[in-house]
Every structure is written in structure tokens, then in C-alpha cells.
């Protein structure tokens, strides 16, 4: 297992190299650069030249690339060309926001999906199952930005109240406000994931329940609860965990819109704003970090397989 993990980690090097080159080149291929953003809609050619000179954007691309990569090896991911704030400092401030949003989203998604999926699988084709399946289709169909907006506007219309918007408070500074700030966007994000996971849990569990070892467990006279939780659910979780791993990668993108709506200063918002402002160092750094997180999450998923199913061995 140790060797396997090491091999996977080493694979990160060519992956990240490829991503760094692709991000660097592709992002520069988009029309417009940070100079046109700084000079604005009445920018003169002199202004554009001056800004490009000052920011080093007139240098050959290879020089710019090696400068950037060289900085990373020295632990310097660069700084915003507009605010001059380093990416490291932005990460310190924003990563906890996105992390908390991801954790709460996953907690909500799992808390809704697993029990609903199990109930649905254990009572297939009953009215209860139909209700759960209807809700899951509904959850999958509602876009998260729409749900997010409803979660703000409905309390406003009904109670003249909205959850605290903007003005992020860290959990350890003001836990009550922090929870109010995160529970609504997490609900908006988590609903669709819960719906997907619920359907997967249901079908996976239905399949596992037909296996011989489950029949054996029944024949031993075990209670339903024991059969499901100790024998069936653990095996049914393998595809669920795989999909959850992929969801977490996808969520990094999904957080953008919720961070915008709820005014949370997270990484998604930083990425979007930096793309629009053509803030090269920030976007490049964020893409590299996202890629690393994505690879690591998938590695973690592979490792968790072995925990769920001891027959799985990595050589």
C-alpha cells in the first residue's frame, strides 16, 4: 500500500507539469490581458505598453514561465498583478472558507442521502420509496444557484429576514453567525449531491442485498438492522465513495456561484474574479492547487476502498 501511494504521488509531478504548461499557454491565448483591464475602456496604446512593461508581460513567454515555475520551487506562488497580495496570503484567508463550505455540503449531502437511500432500498416500490425517489429527482433538477436565491428571498418575503450575507465570520470567532452563513449555501449545494448519492445508494444497496452472503446473514436469523448496516451497507458504499470523490472535485467549481450569491470570500470566487481580471499568477496557482487537490482526493478514495472492502489490495 505504501509503495502504491508513493507511486501515485510521484505521478503528480508529470501531471502538474502538464497542467502548468497548459494553464500558462491557454490562459494567455484568451484575448485581453491584465493591461486592458487596468487601462479600461478608454485605454491608450501607451497605457497598455506601460502596464505590460511594468508587469513583465512583454517578456518572452518562456522567460515568464520559467520565472513562475522557479518561484514555485522557492515556495513563492506569485502575487496578484492587481492587488499585489500574494497567493499564499489569499489562500490563508480563503481556503478555510471553501473548506468549510465543502465539509458542510458533504455532511448535509451524506446525512440526507444515506438514510434516504437505505430506506428507499429496503422498502422498494412502496409509497415511501416513491416519495424519496420523487424528492431526489426534484433535488437533481433544481439548479443550485436558483435554490440559493430562494433560500435568501423566501425568508425575506416571509419573515423580513435573510441569513447573514457577506461579512464572513470565522467559526472560532463567532460560531453562531458562521453557521448561519454556511448552512444555507451548503444546503443549496448539498441538495443535488444528496439526490444523486441517494439514488446511487439505493441501487447499490439493492444489488448488494441480492448477494449470497446477505442471504446467509438473513438465514442466520440476524436482525434487519444488523444485516443492512454491518453486511450490506459497507459493500454498497464503494461506488458511493467513488462518486463522492468526483463530486468533491466538481464542487470546487460549484462553490463559485454560491460564494458569489452568499458573499463568501472563498477560493471559487477568487478564481472566477481572477479569470475575468486576467490575473495570471493567481489563476495559474489556483489551477495547480485545484489539480493537486483533485488528484489527492482521488487517491484518498482509492485508499478508502481498501477500508470498505479488505479484499482490495494495492500492489
Amino acid at each position: 500500500m505504501g509503495n502504491y501511494i508513493l507511486r501515485r504521488l510521484l505521478l503528480l509531478v508529470p501531471i502538474l507539469f502538464g497542467i502548468s504548461v497548459a494553464t500558462f499557454v491557454l490562459f494567455r491565448a484568451i484575448p485581453g490581458d491584465v493591461a486592458v483591464i487596468i487601462c479600461g475602456q478608454t485605454g491608450s496604446p501607451e497605457c497598455l505598453e506601460r502596464v505590460r512593461d511594468q508587469l513583465g508581460l512583454n517578456r518572452p513567454l518562456l522567460v515568464q514561465y520559467t520565472d513562475w515555475v522557479g518561484g514555485i520551487f522557492r515556495g513563492d506562488f506569485g502575487a496578484s498583478m492587481l492587488s499585489h497580495v500574494s497567493l499564499a496570503s489569499e489562500l490563508r484567508h480563503r481556503f478555510p472558507v471553501t473548506l468549510e463550505l465543502l465539509i458542510m455540503t458533504n455532511i448535509i449531502a451524506l446525512a440526507l442521502a444515506i438514510p434516504a437511500g437505505v430506506i428507499s432500498a429496503m422498502r422498494p416500490n412502496t409509497p415511501l420509496d416513491l416519495v424519496v425517489r420523487f424528492l431526489s429527482v426534484l433535488g437533481l433538477s433544481i439548479p443550485n444557484f436558483f435554490l440559493g436565491t430562494l433560500l435568501i428571498l423566501l425568508p425575506l418575503i416571509w419573515f423580513d429576514w435573510t441569513p447573514p450575507l457577506g461579512g464572513y465570520k470565522p467559526f472560532f470567532e463567532d460560531p453562531w453567525t458562521n453557521l448561519q452563513q454556511f448552512i444555507f449555501p451548503s444546503l443549496a449545494l448539498g441538495t443535488a449531491i444528496a439526490a444523486g448519492l441517494m439514488r446511487l445508494t439505493r441501487s447499490s444497496l439493492l444489488e448488494v442485498m441480492r448477494n449470497d452472503y446477505i442471504r446467509t446473514a438473513w438465514s442466520k436469523g440476524l436482525r434487519e438492522r444488523t444485516v443492512v448496516t454491518r453486511h450490506a451497507l459497507k459493500n454498497a458504499m464503494i461506488p458511493v465513495v467513488t462518486v463522492l470523490g468526483l463530486y468533491i472535485g466538481g464542487l470546487m467549481g460549484g462553490t463559485v456561484i454560491l460564494e458569489m450569491i452568499f458573499g463568501l470570500p472563498g477560493l471559487g470566487r477568487l478564481a472566477l474574479e481572477s479569470i475575468l481580471l486576467r490575473d495570471y499568477p493567481i489563476v495559474q496557482g489556483l489551477v495547480l492547487i485545484s489539480a493537486t487537490v483533485f488528484v489527492l482526493v482521488n487517491l484518498a478514495v482509492d485508499v478508502v476502498y481498501a477500508w470498505f472492502d479488505p479484499r482490495i489490495r494495492y500492489a
Partner: peptide, 20 residues
Amino acid sequence: LEYIVIPDDSALLAAFQSKQ
């Protein structure tokens, strides 16, 4: 003074209407 940044216009208006 405190300036609270919310990029979404509808959310910004809702925050004002709820006296935030």
C-alpha cells in the same frame, strides 16, 4: 464605516431589505 462586499445584486438588495 463598514463596507460589506456581496457580488450578487439580488443578495445585496436582500441584505439591505433585511437591514443588514
